[in-house]
Design a protein around this nucleic acid. Structure first.
Lengths: 135, 135
DNA sequence: CGGCTGCTTTGATGACAGTCAATATAGACG
DNA sequence: CGTCTATATTGACTGTCATCAAAGCAGCCG
């Protein structure tokens, strides 16, 4: 649960194809990728991310899936513990929001040399929370 | 096993955060992410990708892991069936190589709006095989 | 041909993940 | 305080996964 994000010591996340991953770093990344390795969770993440402001209430998510309520809650927990989601209680409802820095980090790791645009040595976003994500 | 890559019908892969993933597309993506959801496989992929030419022999991969040889073979098969690796037999040895387009596709899906550089609506590489990956 | 090396497949086993029903907690509202 | 709604947790079940030993397959080489 110690993402490179929180440490802040490393400069950035080099792409997977530049040099072999260390065992620790691979373990950390694998935890996040494993959370993405389920169609339901991917759709959840996408559903939340594509909402206005990148957040949405559980009651908005549930009806999109033909699953029991505990199962929905379980998947959200997995995504949360992987560091991909954050949640906040507002009154009766709980709102989930994506952590863009985490997604960006994974995206940068998978980026191949050819795909990185010249001049941008790293595609990691500087932990920008969530602003004008919607036009 | 039907990646969007092979179909070629769709223009490209929109980021996860633009609109909710369809169920089919999420299933396809999840299959690939699940393959990445293991530290061993991540390190294998990285090891192969960071080799010169983006390919390497199994005998180069095995000694990097404290696992039995069948287990190594199993993980390589998982990555291959996920469409992330390709393999080719040359004499006694089998060489594995990464499929950059697949990595680029996943990278693009995870890219957040903020992370996408202006002007580049899509970061998918045009299935470029593997060229001057090493400087 | 026969053995040798590199890799894959098969079969078995223990661990883990996805799912649900039942139960618990937390806040809103009378 | 009691009840109602929204979400989380627990426990149980089933299926899938990571792993290894053993056996199989494919080229080399003597």
């Amino acid at each position: 649960m110690s993402n490179q994000l929180s440490s802040g010591a490393e400069p950035c996340c080099p792409p997977l194809s530049r040099e072999p991953l260390t065992s620790d770093w691979a373990t950390d990344l694998a935890r996040m990728f494993k959370a993405l390795g389920d169609p339901v969770r991917l759709r959840m993440l996408s559903l939340i991310a594509s909402h206005r402001g990148g957040e949405s209430c559980v009651c908005d998510i549930s009806p999109a899936f033909d699953l029991s309520q505990p199962t929905i809650s379980h998947h959200l927990k997995v995504l949360r513990e992987a560091g991909l989601l954050d949640c906040e209680r507002r009154g009766t409802w709980v709102y989930y929001r994506v952590l863009p820095a985490a997604l960006e980090q994974l995206s940068a790791v998978l980026a191949t040399e050819a795909g990185v645009l010249p001049g941008s040595t790293c595609a990691c976003a500087p932990t920008e929370p969530l602003e004008e994500a919607v036009s």
